[in-house]
């Protein structure tokens, strides 16, 4: 909704600009910052954008989709100013092609993956090495995000680390994205699923029955960077704003952890 309103506002501004060419200097300064963001950021990022705009920042338009889709769109010339990925791989993918500005790249947020069950009195599951996931599933399936999306990769890594991947591999139902995974579990299609802590927190239909140890999978990092093709001078300022405590409060409320660190170039 929020981004729709921003888009409409941008449209109105553009129309006004067309209608009153004399007012051009101010109108051009308000070009919206186009942000391509991983879909798991929806909600929290909308809140941060609202704060940014309320503080007098440039208007922001956010396009949410899977990180891989967004990275490929940027690769083929989509007019994004800022890219926020749900994992480091797709940021690296663009960085290696010099499609993002290295000096603006930073590790913005952290997240956790959790085991969820339908919210109807599910019992907690003790997650540890060789835990009894297969037994808990019975003859039903474990919902995991597609291995192409970061959430799926982290889930698989955690299960491998804990030594249960081999036994549940054949019992997995892959969901196209995190939202679809949540739907499968909240609708009772599957007894368990693995999603981000933030998504589990946002869906009242599911309950968190266990959290995977942080060291069972690569750190879940949401990196952000300004794209190489961005012509919007306000893009860097927006990225900086996202790392401020003010924006951080919004993200932390949604279940993220603030990292705010700048990466070492490697």
């Amino acid at each position: 909704m929020r981004s729709l309103r921003t888009l409409l506002a941008a449209g109105v501004v553009a129309l006004a600009g067309l209608a009153t060419p004399l007012a051009a200097p101010q109108a051009q300064a308000a070009d919206p910052i186009v942000v391509f963001a991983a879909v798991s950021l929806k909600g929290a990022l909308d809140g941060a954008v609202a704060l940014y705009e309320a503080d007098g920042g440039a208007p922001v338009t956010v396009s949410y989709a899977g990180s891989s889709a967004l990275a490929k769109q940027i690769e083929s010339g989509a007019p994004a100013d800022v890219f926020i990925s749900a994992d480091l791989d797709w940021m690296t993918y663009l960085a290696e092609k010099n499609l993002v500005r290295a000096d603006t790249e930073r590790r913005l947020l952290g997240n956790r993956i959790v085991l969820i069950a339908p919210n109807d009195g599910a019992k907690p599951v003790a997650i540890g090495p060789d835990f009894a996931l297969t037994a808990a599933l019975g003859d039903e399936r474990l919902v995991l995000c597609d291995l192409a999306v970061p959430c799926g990769k982290y889930g698989k890594a955690a299960l491998e680390t804990l030594g249960v991947w081999g036994s549940v591999e054949g019992r997995i139902a892959f969901a196209e994205n995190v939202r679809a995974a949540l739907a499968f579990v909240s609708r009772g299609e599957a007894p368990y699923g693995i999603v981000y802590a933030t998504d589990a927190a946002a869906d009242p239909g599911v309950a968190v029955v266990g959290t995977f140890p942080e060291d069972s999978h690569p750190p879940i990092v949401y990196p952000v960077a300004v794209t190489a093709d961005s012509k919007n001078p306000a893009a860097a300022a927006f990225v900086d704003f996202l790392a401020t405590p003010k924006a951080g409060a919004v993200f932390e409320k949604a279940g993220f952890t603030m990292l705010g660190e700048r990466p070492t170039t490697n």
């Binding site: 919902v143 597609d146 997995i172 139902a173 892959f174 969901a175 196209e176 679809a180 739907a183 499968f184």
Partner: peptide, 8 residues
């Protein structure tokens, strides 16, 4: 399909 019955 993928939303209804996944991609198994």
């Amino acid at each position: 399909t993928v939303t209804f019955v996944s991609n198994i």
